[in-house]
């Protein structure tokens, strides 16, 4: 399972970075999404995968039956997904604004702030 996840993380990172290297800002945004999913999956996988044993305390007991899945990484991933959601929402608005203002989605056209003169 871990191997499969590792391969998946690799594929996600690779495709995310590939998309970010394209010139289109829409692809940049999609690349960022893939990258953030890859990072979430890394966090989730590296913390250890335990299948089918949620950390729920049975009625009357005071501890879940061992082995149980570590709840902390799940909480972390959930938080990271929420943050990723917020950031993505902002990025989409930004991409739309940039397209409206600059009139193109080609990154090469957006170099006016890099040169020596504005």
């Amino acid at each position: 399972m871990e191997t499969l996840m590792a391969v998946l993380v690799g594929v996600l990172f690779a495709s995310g970075i590939y998309l970010m290297l394209r010139r289109s800002i829409v692809k940049l945004a999609i690349g960022l999404v893939l990258l953030s999913q890859a990072a979430n999956l890394t966090l989730f996988t590296a913390a250890g995968l335990t299948r089918g044993s949620p950390p729920l305390v049975p009625e009357g007991g005071d501890m879940p039956p061992v082995p149980f899945a570590d709840p902390l990484p799940q909480a972390l991933v959930l938080t990271a997904i929420v943050i990723g959601f917020g950031v993505l929402a902002f990025t989409l608005v930004l991409v739309k604004r940039v397209y409206q203002t600059v009139g193109t989605d080609d990154m090469d056209e957006m170099r006016s702030t890099d040169g020596f003169k504005d």
């Binding site: 890859a38 990072a39 991409v95 170099r111 702030t113």
Partner: peptide
């Protein structure tokens, strides 16, 4: 501003993703 923001957002998000991994 928008052109600067795109670069700022992209690079800082990559950094955040590396941090999260």
């Amino acid at each position: 501003q928008l052109e600067g923001a795109i670069k700022y957002v992209a690079l800082n998000l990559i950094s955040s993703m590396i941090l999260l991994s």
